[in-house]
Amino acid sequence: MVSNNSSHTTHRHRDDVGAKLGMWLFLFTELLLFGGMFLAYAVYRMKYPQQFHLSAMEMNTTIGTINTIILLTSSLTMVLSIAAIQKKNKFLSIIFLVSTLILGVLFLINKYFEWGHEISKGIYPGSEVLLSKDNGEILYFGLYYAMTGLHGLHVIIGMIVLLFMLVFIINDNIKWDDYVKLENSGLYWHLVDIIWIFLFPLFYLIQ
């Protein structure tokens, strides 16, 4: 393979394929990061099937479903934002990126109410209500808070990245012929979406 690093200034060379390769490797590490938690979930579900069933009954499937729809839609607006910049439509790209951000905020608001609801019932780590339950239920809610919490953190990080991209589009750092940053941020956003696609059935649907 011949390197396409032919420019003579080391630190300004551009390699979109390389940038995407690096991003995919990073996403791979993110999958493995969550993979450790999915593994723990699988092990404990095998160990305490009954308690996992009981705990899942307490989840609010409606909020979960709404959040799934919100995140899937935000992935769509993300893709549309990239498509718009490719078609040299800066304005439309900004509109779609802002929509993605708004959907991200909506997701977090929903999450806030959902967690708030559980906490108001007294179910939170270390609470007396939770500790009086069976071990399997303690683990279920432990994993629920840890996994959705880490996912929520990823949503926030994703939104910060997208905010940067918004600024980059506005001052033409990202353009129709140079948008690999936006594409990579999009990949990250889709990863956040995909993780949710697995969290949703594991905690809300399998009862």
Binding site: L32, V43, Y44, G126, N135, G136, I138, G142, L143
Partner: peptide, 28 residues
């Protein structure tokens, strides 16, 4: 990444008392 998440889980367990590995909370 696997060690990353494992260490994070102990941190979460220590700081917030989330039950994940601690055998008194059913963990393994």
């Amino acid at each position: 990444p696997i060690i990353g998440i494992t260490l994070l889980l102990i941190i979460v367990e220590r700081t917030f008392g989330v039950g994940i590995f601690d055998p008194t909370l059913g963990g393994d």
